[in-house]
Simulated assay, not measured.
Amino acid sequence: MAAHEQGVAAGPTSTTQRLGGAVGPAVLVAVAGPAASVAGLRTARLAAAVGTVAGLRTARLAAAVGTVVTALVALRFTRPAAPPPAAPGAAPRTARVPG
């Protein structure tokens, strides 16, 4: 990436990180909620404790699956090949600025 394009690339990256920090926990809570409902236990306190553990386990599993999927998608991206080195005695290459 050219030096003059780095600021443009930083904007979407920062926005994505901020959105992930807000949406990620909301999704995990939505996943943990239904998994936390446990019926048939003797006391409400025990049901709440078991349900919380089950919900957190499910949310942690969902987060792990999301992390693995994200890593697999990220591995598919490649960097462009570096330009070959200049021949000895050749004039130095200069960066072209579109304009």
Rank of each mutant, 00 (worst) to 15 (best):
M1D: 09
A2N: 15
H4S: 08
H4I: 14
H4V: 14
H4G: 03
Q6P: 05
G7M: 07
G7Q: 10
G7R: 13
V8G: 08
V8H: 10
V8R: 14
G11E: 13
P12F: 04
T13A: 15
T13E: 08
T13G: 12
S14M: 15
S14P: 01
S14D: 13
S14I: 14
T15I: 14
T15G: 13
Q17G: 06
Q17S: 14
Q17C: 10
Q17H: 05
R18F: 07
L19R: 06
L19W: 10
G20D: 01
G21T: 04
G21W: 04
A22N: 09
V23Q: 03
V23N: 00
G24M: 14
G24T: 06
L28D: 10
V29P: 04
V29R: 15
V29Q: 14
V29N: 13
A30D: 06
V31P: 09
V31W: 08
A32V: 06
A32F: 09
P34Q: 07
P34I: 05
P34S: 14
A35R: 06
A35V: 06
A35Q: 05
A35G: 10
A35C: 13
A36Y: 03
A36E: 04
A36R: 00
A39G: 12
A39W: 05
G40Y: 00
G40I: 02
G40M: 01
R42G: 09
T43W: 00
A44W: 01
R45Y: 01
A47N: 01
A48G: 00
A48C: 00
V50T: 02
G51I: 01
G51S: 02
T52S: 07
G55S: 07
R57D: 12
R57P: 02
T58L: 10
A59Q: 02
A59H: 12
L61T: 14
L61Q: 09
L61I: 07
A62R: 09
A63P: 01
A63H: 09
A64N: 11
V65P: 04
T67H: 13
T67G: 13
V68A: 15
V68P: 10
V69H: 03
T70N: 12
T70E: 07
T70V: 08
A71K: 03
L72T: 09
V73G: 01
V73I: 10
V73R: 13
V73A: 15
A74N: 13
A74Q: 12
A74E: 05
T78K: 10
P80A: 08
P80F: 02
A82L: 12
A82Q: 12
P83A: 06
P84L: 15
A86H: 02
A86Y: 03
P88I: 05
G89S: 09
G89Y: 03
A91T: 13
A91F: 07
A91P: 08
P92E: 14
P92R: 04
P92M: 08
R93I: 02
A95W: 08
A95D: 15
A95S: 11
V97S: 13
P98K: 09
G99L: 15
